[in-house]
Design a binder for these strands. Structure first.
Lengths: 244, 244
DNA sequence: AAAAGCCCGATTGTATACGATCTGGCGGAT
DNA sequence: ATCCGCCAGATCGTATACAATCGGGCTTTT
């Protein structure tokens, strides 16, 4: 390893940019890894060696371990004792549970959010829909990644409008894990059905038809799940396949 | 504000006893602190000095920090940079959000759980109701603690019956935080209304009246919240009161 | 040559070391 | 007497050290 003492210099996020002395160094690592997982830059099963990650960010294993532990709590990383941390490789069953949970929570979130929505909120949602539409028409790997992310952002946006931080955190976790599941089991062919459904949901909310909006939301989540192929398991680590 | 240490009892979980080399030493610390918080042995605002906790369990600060970080993630502990960790002191607003979340989630959990319930599950629930009733008739501080815990266990038991681990973990967190809130804001006089409501809910489920059961559940959660006095803030740390 | 056993490197688990930051008291200046 | 600044103790944040464990390759044996 190299010398970290000689000069405290250049830490991770914003090396010396803003002076606000970012406490969240560990947080920055966690967010970087999470983004990489959700964006499919880190495939499920990838080993996250503490030393390697630390070297990437120029920090010691201490901070890396903290970040990894947080990600374990969020369900994006798994650890095996004395073997290390890996990008989570959710089973089909786990995938089903995630979407089942979303079907239970999101209609309620939608109803609660609707009670707080102002015209400004609707404007925000409409902008989001436009972005989604644009990404949908594009082709290519990166556009698809962005589309998955944008689709999740729509749901997160509604959750944020409840003003309920507790629910918001649950949704953050559910969306992140959903993205991971879609990365794993999504059929590359489709996934475009979501956009029009989002639009319908916003229309229904704006029309005051909350029951209809809730029903649409449940169907929408069901459609997302139906677009997956949960029969096969896309494991990149033989370990999971060979000794279950 | 004294602590439980009648004796620091050497190590935490099986120091060197059994050979199965329990990995979960950090987990044991986390669980011990969590139980202490939920059981009101640790009052909100209490400082959790890493060295002190480590000394109690005969481990280094490393493991203590890990345990505390996990509890931060669960919302039971807060940390202030360079000042340390404290037992969480949820604000009235936070309390409202916790119960609002429960009202959104629990009817759905109940409906989902009902789909998996067998006679054995109902037997388990009935036993739980008996325990609650017994605790309700007792008096004293420890009985009240046990009653709060038992009341939470009822809700957790239903969540467990969904077979959905994701939801189960959310509920674990919600119940733990609810216990903390009740400790803080609960009026010592009442709290007994919950038991009969639990019974009604089980009756409704068993009768196949899921809609009614869900409605009862929402009302029940509302009653728990109504029994709180969220006007005043029972803060033991002036910090929170004087500079919000 | 194939199989079994052993050793070594890699990686994790835990403890400790060291610098940074906050808190509170003491003493001098006004 | 009061206020301000300095110093010391306590505690945190991060890095590093050391021990335990795992897995793979090499050697040895048959």
């Amino acid at each position: 390893m190299n010398n970290r003492q000689t000069k405290p210099e250049t830490l991770i996020a914003r090396p010396d940019a803003d002076g606000n002395r970012i406490d969240g160094n560990q947080r920055a690592i966690r967010d970087a890894i999470r983004d990489a997982i959700v964006d499919r830059r880190l495939m499920p099963g990838t080993k996250l060696t503490e030393t390697d990650v630390g070297a990437l960010f120029n920090v010691s294993r201490t901070l890396v371990r903290g970040a990894l532990q947080a990600l374990v709590h969020e369900g994006l990383v798994t650890v095996e004792r004395n073997r290390g941390a890996f990008v989570a490789n959710p089973s089909p069953e786990e995938a089903r549970q995630i979407f089942a949970t979303r079907r239970i929570i999101e209609p309620g979130i939608l109803t609660e959010a609707a009670r707080h929505m102002t015209p400004s909120h609707f404007r925000q949602l409409r902008e989001q829909l436009v972005d989604e539409g644009r990404l949908m028409s594009e082709r290519g790997q990166s556009a698809r990644r962005a589309e998955i992310k944008a689709s999740g952002d729509f749901h997160l946006m509604i959750a944020a409008m409840t003003g309920n931080a507790v629910m918001q955190r649950f949704m953050d976790e559910l969306i992140a894990r959903s993205s991971l599941v879609i990365s794993l089991y999504g059929q590359s062919t489709v996934s475009s059905c979501g956009h029009s459904e989002h639009t319908e949901i916003v229309d229904a909310i704006e029309a005051g038809q909350l029951d209809r909006a809730s029903r649409l939301m449940v169907h929408h989540i069901h459609h997302i799940e139906a677009d997956l192929d949960l029969r096969i398991r896309r494991a990149n680590e033989l370990r999971d396949v060979l000794l279950p």
